[in-house]
Each structure stands twice: as C-alpha cells, then as structure tokens.
Nucleic acid binder design. Structure first.
Length: 588
RNA sequence: ACACUCGUAGCUCAGUGGAUAGAGCACUGGCCUCCGGAGCCAGGUGCGUGGGUUCGAUUCCCAUCGAGUGUACCA
C-alpha cells in the first residue's frame, strides 16, 4: 500500500501544479499541531520568495483547489502560510481497514532488494559473552529482521573471534597449568585425543587469568605471541588444542544466543578467512600496495582530504603474524566469493570506527571490494551503569551476559508475583519472555549510536516506555479478543466504520503510520523509531480502550468495527516486536 | 596536542529549518456499578554559551565551554 503521506502529497502536488507552482513544494508532513490539524504542508512559505507572492496567498490558492478532494475533511490556509489538513474519516477508516486485510499490514517490500551480509555478534571463542556483546547481538538481530522484512536477502554471520592473540594466551596458560598434556610434548607423534582437556567453565577461567598475566609479565606475553604465530602457521598440537577450544566454546555460545533469540546463518570466524591471506598478501605486494614501515607490512590509507591522520592499515606485524585488519580484509574476499553481496554491514562498538575506516579504505584501494558493494559500519555506543560509567558488576568486574539476563528475569518475576496470582512455574516461564522484552526494548529504544544508561529497574518496569508495557498492551488486547470470540457467534472481522470519537481516530491515525515508520527504520537502520512508534501506538490504544466499551457495545456493527480495530492494533504491535526480536506471552 | 561524537526538564531519553520543543520516571491531585487500575485525566521547569546564514534556527555554519571516545603492530 502506498504510504498515507505519499497519497496526500500527491493530492497536494496536483493542487500546486494547477495553481502554477512547483510540485516539489507540495510535501505533506505530520502535523506538529494536532490540535489544529492532522497533516500540514509548509510549501507555500518556501514558495513565497520564488514566486514573489505572500505565502498566505499561495496557501489560500492551493487550499481552494482541495476543497472537494475526498481525501480531506478540511483544508485550510493559516497565517503565515501553513496549509492545514484534516483527513477524511472515511478515507482513514478504509486505509486502516485495508491494512488489516493485508498480510504485510500495508508495508510493501522495497523495490530494490539487496543481498546483505551482516556481521554482528562478534563473540570471542573461549571468553564468555559479556554485556559488551549485548548491543551488537540485539541491534544486529533487529536490523537483520527489519532488512529481511523490507525485502533484502540477509546473511547473518556471527564472525567469531577465534584466531587472535587470545588463542595463544590460552595455549600458553594451559601449558603452565598442565605441562604434562601431550600437546606440549614435542616428542609426541600420535593422534591427539578427541575430547577437550577442559570444560567450558575451566576455559572461561583460563582466559582472564592469562590475559591479566600477560599485562604483568612481558615474557609470558611474548610466549603467547609466539604460540599465536605457531598456531597460525599450522603447528599440529596447537591446531588440535585450538579445535578443542572452538568445539567447547561454540556449544556454549549457541546456547547463549538462543536464549537471546539471536540467530545466525553463518558461524564463520576469523580462522575461516586465513586461507585467503597468503594470496591476498602476495597480490597486494604485486600490485605495489603493500610496503614495509617500521618493521610491519602496511597499506597506506591516508587521503589528502583527511582532517586527521589516518594511520596505515597494518597487514602483517613485524613478527610476521597477521591481525584483525588482515583477517577482516580476507573475510571480505571470502564474502565476495561466497555471496557477492551488494552491501556488507558491520555492527560493532563505535570505538572501532578507525579500524573499519582503515579496512574499508584498504579494501577499496587494493580492489578487494568494488564500488558497487557498499561497506557500512554501524557503530553503537557504550552501555553504562547508573553512574554514567561503563557498566560493571558491583565489584568492578565485567558482567557476564548470563548473569545480566538472570537478573532482569528475576526482576520481572518478582513484579509478576507481587501483582498477580499466577503459579510460580508460569511466572518463571513468562518472566523469561517479558525479561527479554525488557532487555531488548531498553536497549533498542535508545539511538544505537549513543551511549545509554542500563537500568534494570527502569527497563523491567511495567509502566512507561518499556518492553513489558508494550507486551501488556498486547496481552490486554488478546484478552478482549478471546472474550469476544467466546461469547459471539461472529468469527470474522468486520468493516471499519468511521471513528466515532477522537481517541478512536487517534488510534487509526497512529496505525496508518506503520509503513512510513518501518521504511524510515529500514533506511536509517534505526530500530528506535519502531520503539517510539509502538509506544505511541500503545498509548493510543489505551486511550481508546479507556473511553470505549468494546464488549459492552450493543450496536453489533459498531462492536465488530471495534474488534477489527483492536485486532489490527494487535497485529501491528506483534509485527513490530517481532522485528525488534521478541514476542508477547498469552498472559502476564 | 590533534581529530571525531555528544551537551534538550531534577533523572532517563525522543524530536524538528517553521506555529505552543515532546514522552517516561519522580512529585501532587482526581477517576474502580467498567472489557486486565500493570490503566486513564489534570498539574511545573528545558534546547550549555556567544555569534552568523534564513522570512523563520533547538535543528545548518563558526567560535567557545563541558563530557566521552580515538590517534600503527590489541580486538
């Protein structure tokens, strides 16, 4: 379905043309004075200079043209030159009614479907997921869903950190802890064991210990770097250990992402790109892009227009090892071969922006990625605690994601037990669903690029602009619909009648914005637009609910219209939360 | 030092080249013969500061102050 603003703009364009003005001036926007009108057009004021006429006169001429247009109830020219429009209630009701009949609720897929690789999640093997991974997962997941809904073919890749220094650190630490393992016996010639010599719990303990030690102990760090290099060069015992680390870790990661309802199509990692590196490097050398600088092999990516110094992109360290940028570049080669995407989108902490600037420029410069493939970095801000500083546990450590999720579910659970008599079991079950909405909505309702304050109390509240409040609204509608279909012989939705009071009209107006909002969220990659929309929609619904007796309505036609209206509201809310990555329970 | 981002209500956040800058929380008062009161209604304060462009700037530009982040072998 055409967006309602587009429909109205077309009418205005006709009117502007007839009056002899440029139709580009005819853009209709939502009214910022809902007390005066539903929609407005400010084009007459912009036209005033161009046509050397008073804006109010232009507005008046255009308004006069529109007096008989069936899309409008009224069109007025108001000083200094606003064109204020009230929408025809018949048109509004039929528009919203048509939305309800459409299985995409009036949202058309965009014309040019793109093939998109999305790189988010960014979990590191052998390290537990912590709050730092939360945003990438949550935002990436919703962007994936939004892009897919809008018609893109999206391939989501978790892109594990499975190849960096942390692997060397773990190997060296393991050697200190258990020097007798066969992996460290240089004379050992046999097969390496099938099973890992550690559990996930042990693994998760090893890394932070090794990492801390490497900061204190220079020799230890050097050995870790050496081990990393050996691993990268294919030294069999380290390869065997590395496989164990991966195997143990991925099982655990999958479980965690599943709890977050975050799904990936690909579980590739940095290691998968390694095979592409030798050719990539020799190609870069051949073409003259790669040169030695301070002992490292680099590609210069500085440009004359830069306002700041952009350091060269390091492809190979002075010790011969490769790094993050190298495998990201190699991954680009891999992705191009595997998918030939139109766009590659990275979700990562905005502090990594420089890295992506370097990689993107190096990729363009060396011809790894052509002009027709768009490279996009969507940086997100830090999750802070109530003190405004990066979120930490009480004792100052990094909080594990599992712990965080547990805490928010617990907060929701306690609220449910206070307010409603449900069984503990049901409350547990439902609190997981509601807790997830609290977590995701709390994050997504903020602009992704900004830092935000994470506040369990606030996010898990059932009041205000929160996930649980949205879910509550849906559950409430479900409850009414269930009652209606229990006591009524009617099983089908009816026709929407024109709104009989303001709150009903408000609800319809809000519903009619859906396709506009989804498109904006898609174009701007801005999930918070959807959050703002459904919050307002929930408010509109509650306003309508408050002054309409739905089940008590005696006029059958009217009642059926109400039922249809709230049913459309439910569908819209459900679509939106599905895009945001959570769903509503039956009761709460 | 340089660069980038951000300064909106007591707090957490939206928003826009246009009319009276919005929500939530918190605070105060109403509203249950009512489909879920986890609701509805009413009540106060704000665009860091100074310039500029514009008919019109909170929005665009410049300066200034403040905060955050980044500046080659970590990811």
């Amino acid at each position: 379905m055409k967006k309602i603003l587009a429909v109205l703009t077309e009418e205005l364009e006709k009117a502007f043309c007839v009056c002899g003005y440029d139709e580009k001036l005819a853009k209709v926007t939502l009214s910022n004075r809902p007390d005066l009108c539903d929609y407005q057009c400010n084009g007459a004021m912009a036209a005033a200079k161009q046509y050397k006429k008073a804006p109010i006169q232009i507005a008046g001429e255009v308004a006069a043209q529109l007096q008989n247009c069936d899309k409008f109830q009224s069109v007025q020219a108001v000083n200094p030159g606003f064109i204020n429009m009230k929408i025809s209630e018949e048109f509004l009701a039929s528009y919203v009614g048509d939305m309800g009949k459409d299985d995409r609720l009036g949202c058309e897929p965009c014309e040019s479907s793109r093939k998109v690789v999305m790189d988010y999640g960014g979990a590191n093997v052998a390290k537990p997921l912590h709050v730092g991974h939360l945003r990438s997962a949550i935002i990436g997941e919703t962007l994936k869903r939004i892009c897919r809904f809008c018609g893109d073919e999206v391939i989501a890749d978790v892109h594990l950190g499975d190849w960096g220094l942390q692997m060397g650190l773990i190997i060296v630490q393991l050697q200190e802890d258990q020097p007798d393992l066969v992996y460290f016996d240089t004379d050992y010639k046999g097969e390496y064991p099938q099973d890992a010599p550690f559990t996930i719990t042990e693994l998760e303990e090893i890394y932070p210990r090794a990492s801390a030690k490497s900061k204190q102990d220079g020799a230890f760090k050097e050995r870790a770097q050496q081990a990393t290099l050996q691993l990268q060069q294919g030294y069999p015992p380290y390869r065997a250990l590395w496989k164990h680390i991966l195997q143990v870790s991925i099982v655990d990661l999958k479980k965690n992402y599943e709890n977050l309802q975050v799904e990936f199509d690909l579980w590739k990692g940095e290691s998968d790109a390694q095979d592409y590196i030798p050719d990539m490097i020799s190609d870069m050398k051949e073409k003259g892009f790669l040169h030695e600088s301070q002992g490292a092999m680099v590609v210069d990516v500085a440009q004359e227009t830069d306002t700041k110094e952009i350091p060269p992109c390091i492809i190979q360290k002075s010790d011969g090892a490769v790094l993050y940028a190298t495998s990201d570049l190699a991954t680009l080669i891999q992705r191009k071969q595997d998918f030939a995407p139109d766009r590659i989108l990275y979700m990562a902490d905005k502090r990594q922006e420089m890295h992506f600037v370097q990689v993107f420029r190096a990729a363009r410069k060396t011809g790894i990625v052509e002009e027709n493939t768009q490279l996009l970095f969507k940086g997100f801000g830090t999750m802070n605690g109530k003190d405004g500083k990066p979120f930490k546990t009480r004792d100052g450590g990094v909080m594990r994601l599992e712990t965080l999720i547990g805490e928010i579910n617990q907060a929701v659970y306690e609220k449910m037990m206070e307010n409603r008599s449900v069984s503990q079991e049901e409350a547990r079950e439902v609190s997981r669903i509601v807790g997830l909405s609290a977590l995701k909505y709390g994050d997504l309702s903020n602009q992704a690029s900004k830092d935000y304050v994470f506040d369990i109390e606030r996010f898990s509240s059932f009041e205000g602009n929160t996930g649980p409040y949205i879910l509550y609204t849906i559950v409430r509608i479900k409850s009414i619909l269930t009652k209606y279909y229990q006591q009524s012989s009617e099983q089908e939705e009816g026709v929407l009648l024109v709104p009989s009071h303001q709150s009903e009209k408000n609800l319809m107006l809000q519903l009619s914005k859906l396709n506009e909002v989804i498109e904006t969220a898609y174009e701007e990659l801005a999930p918070h637009r959807i959050c703002a929309y459904i919050y307002e929609l929930s408010d509109c619904f509650n306003g309508f609910y408050h002054d309409t007796k739905i089940l008590g309505e005696e006029d059958q036609q009217k009642q059926k219209s109400y039922i249809t209206l709230i049913s459309i509201t439910k569908k819209v809310l459900e679509l939106c939360i599905e895009l945001l990555g959570f769903q509503a329970p039956e009761r709460m």
